[in-house]
């Protein structure tokens, strides 16, 4: 399937509120990076290359002299392990897209892009244009806003003041509602939430996402019955 501009526009139409939400969060990250000695160019590199918000905040938190590079890279990988689940799940919906695009499509698969794409995939297969329309503009939005944040430094207000820190949670709640398919989904999300609370209490980092997610997936696998197909 080739690129269609109308698909791209449809993707942008769905994704643009997230562009807005990325700006203040990326700028906040940029100010924190600047406080640890990052130049705007370094902030631009990091946001462009790593391009994973949660892990970037963790990395900046760990940024001391001398850099614990090995520990940082390991920690970043752990924080990002959830992407394996995203990629495994989304891989089923991109069969219609030329495989040469797949490595790049994985590169721009953030939490928010993934959630929006899964929502679309509920009703129809993903096209190249739609995928890029949702996911691609978020990337320059993120790294350019990071550099601006690093350039401006502490002159910026906290996004929490206008509730923008809640924008991502609100979007995830909205998309979660679309996956409701009756009591089975109820069991999945309840176990996921319970395990996430326990994991969040006892482990640092993003383990709660991985463990909660896997627990919910395990419930679905265990309650699966042949006849239910």
């Amino acid at each position: 399937m080739s690129f269609r501009f109308s698909d791209f526009k449809a993707g942008v139409t769905v994704g643009w509120p997230m562009f807005l939400a990325y700006v203040p969060i990326a700028m906040l990250w940029g100010t924190l990076a600047a406080a640890k000695g990052f130049s705007p160019l370094e902030a631009l590199f990091m946001s462009g290359l790593v391009y994973a918000g949660a892990s970037q905040f963790v990395a900046i938190e760990m940024w001391v002299d001398p850099l614990p590079i090995v520990l940082m890279i390991f920690t970043i990988f752990i924080v990002n392990v959830r992407h394996m689940l995203y990629a495994a799940s989304i891989s089923r919906h991109i069969n219609g897209i030329d495989r040469r695009w797949h490595p790049f499509l994985m590169y721009i698969l953030t939490d928010e892009a993934w959630a929006l794409l899964e929502r679309q995939a509920l009703t129809q297969p993903l096209t190249l244009g739609y995928y890029l329309g949702v996911a691609l503009p978020l990337w320059p939005t993120w790294f350019i806003s990071s550099a601006i944040g690093a350039f401006l430094g502490h002159a910026l207000p906290d996004p929490a003041l206008i509730g923008l820190d809640f924008a991502f949670a609100a979007m995830f709640i909205a998309i979660l509602a679309g996956f409701w398919k009756g009591p089975r989904t109820g069991a999945v999300v309840i176990i996921s939430a319970v395990v996430a609370v326990i994991a969040k209490t006892y482990f640092s980092g993003a383990w709660y996402i991985v463990l909660g997610g896997l627990a919910g997936v395990a419930v679905a696998a265990l309650t699966y019955k042949e006849a239910a197909e």
């Binding site: 939490d111 959630a115 949670a169 979660l176 996956f179 996921s192 909660g212 997936v217 419930v219 239910a228």
Partner: peptide, 19 residues
Amino acid sequence: AALDAVPPAVLMAVITPTV
């Protein structure tokens, strides 16, 4: 069935600390 449960399970886990 397991892969179909990835989106609701992970989204729930993601929002749990905030909610």
